[in-house]
Computed example of a mutant assay.
Amino acid sequence: MRITQGTFSYLPELSDQQITAQVDYCLDKGWALAIEYTDDPHPRNTYWEMFGPPMFDLRDAAGVMRELANCRQTFPQHYIRMTAFDSSMGVESLVAAFIVNRPDKEPGFRLVRHEDAGRKIRYSIESYAVQAQPEGSRY
């Protein structure tokens, strides 16, 4: 199962050259970039761990790509995404987010059926990444 979250998620994986082009686009717009990572990309898990502070002061794609390389080296089997924030309206608004790294094996999700009172049937999504196995052996 391939996780599809954020911009470009239904396209083939972006190459580093394509990621650099997107970073240049974001920097040209004056957006600040940040790198985030997680091992549990549940659709409702919108708060991933940040890899360092947001890069408000960087205006060169090479610096952003160096930080991405450091994150990939530190967390090679995690999902890593690049996020861009626009502060032109006085608040930091997320304007773009795209996945730039995936684990070799993506755990996926399972659909859990719950039977409720009154013959109601409810469904929930459960991530295989949060099973009882310890981190690093979940996949």
Rank of each mutant, 00 (worst) to 15 (best):
T4M: 08
T4H: 04
Q5S: 14
Q5W: 14
Q5A: 12
G6A: 05
T7A: 15
F8E: 09
S9Y: 01
Y10K: 13
Y10N: 14
Y10S: 13
Y10H: 13
P12G: 01
P12N: 00
E13H: 06
E13G: 06
L14G: 03
L14K: 08
D16T: 06
Q17G: 12
Q17Y: 11
Q17H: 15
Q17F: 13
T20P: 00
T20L: 00
A21K: 00
A21T: 00
Q22W: 04
V23H: 02
V23W: 03
C26D: 07
L27H: 02
D28S: 10
D28I: 00
K29C: 15
W31V: 04
W31N: 10
A32P: 04
A32C: 11
A32W: 05
L33R: 10
A34D: 13
A34H: 02
I35F: 02
E36R: 13
Y37L: 10
Y37M: 08
Y37K: 09
T38A: 07
T38C: 10
T38K: 06
D39W: 12
P41R: 08
H42S: 13
H42C: 05
P43L: 07
R44M: 10
R44A: 12
R44V: 06
T46A: 08
Y47N: 12
W48C: 05
W48A: 05
M50F: 12
M50I: 04
F51Q: 08
F51A: 13
G52A: 09
G52P: 09
P53W: 07
P53N: 08
F56Q: 05
F56H: 12
F56S: 05
D57K: 03
L58D: 09
L58F: 09
R59V: 01
R59Y: 00
D60Y: 04
D60K: 10
A62L: 03
A62P: 01
A62M: 02
G63Y: 02
M65W: 04
M65Q: 08
M65E: 03
L68D: 03
L68G: 06
L68P: 02
N70Y: 05
C71V: 14
C71N: 14
C71Y: 13
T74H: 10
F75R: 15
F75W: 14
P76G: 03
P76K: 09
Q77E: 15
H78C: 11
Y79C: 01
Y79E: 02
I80V: 15
I80C: 10
F85S: 08
S87N: 14
S87V: 11
S87L: 10
S88L: 07
S88W: 06
S88R: 14
M89Y: 12
G90M: 11
V91S: 14
E92P: 09
E92W: 14
S93M: 14
L94N: 13
L94M: 14
V95G: 04
A96H: 13
F98A: 06
I99W: 01
N101F: 09
N101A: 15
R102L: 06
P103D: 00
D104K: 14
D104G: 13
K105R: 07
K105D: 00
E106C: 07
E106V: 09
P107G: 06
P107C: 11
G108M: 06
G108D: 04
G108C: 03
G108R: 05
V112Q: 08
R113N: 10
H114V: 03
H114P: 00
D116P: 05
D116Y: 11
G118Q: 07
G118F: 10
G118W: 07
R119Q: 15
R122H: 12
Y123R: 01
Y123V: 02
I125R: 06
Y128L: 15
Y128F: 15
A129S: 15
A129V: 09
